[in-house]
Every structure is written in C-alpha cells, then in structure tokens.
C-alpha cells in the first residue's frame, strides 16, 4: 500500500468501525497502521494451501 492508499484506508475503515478519529490523532493512527502494515506484509505474502486452517481455539 502506498502512503496515500493507507491514509484513504484508515479514513474509510475508521468510518466503518464507528471511530471518529480527531484531526490531531489521525496522523498518529496512520503511523501506527503503517507500522502494522509493514510487519503484516510478509505474513500476507505467504502462499498457503487451502488445508492450512486458522489456529483458533474453539471447542463446541
């Protein structure tokens, strides 16, 4: 994601989550999202076969 794409995404996702992000907070949230995005990128790039299920714990 480019810087502008991240900014646009953060604005849209905050709206979708009902979060009103004040102007002075927005830059800091964008900086944090940029960090998360950078850390997540290699995870998102891992090709996985369909039989690898999420590692959730759920016992009905």
């Amino acid at each position: 994601m480019t810087e502008r794409e991240i900014e646009a995404y953060v604005d849209a996702a905050a709206l979708a989550q009902g979060l009103v992000v004040a102007a002075d907070v927005r830059a800091r949230v964008i900086a944090q999202f940029t960090l998360i995005q950078a850390i997540a990128a290699p995870v998102l790039a891992v090709p996985l076969p369909t039989d690898v299920e999420p590692a959730n714990v759920f016992r009905p």
Binding site: A13, L19, V21, V25, F33, L35, I36, A40
Partner: peptide
C-alpha cells in the same frame, strides 16, 4: 493509537 490501528485491520 496502536489499539485503534489494530482495530482497523
């Protein structure tokens, strides 16, 4: 701000 950013993933 890290919590907010996390919630937006």
């Amino acid at each position: 701000d890290r919590l907010v950013a996390g919630a937006l993933m």
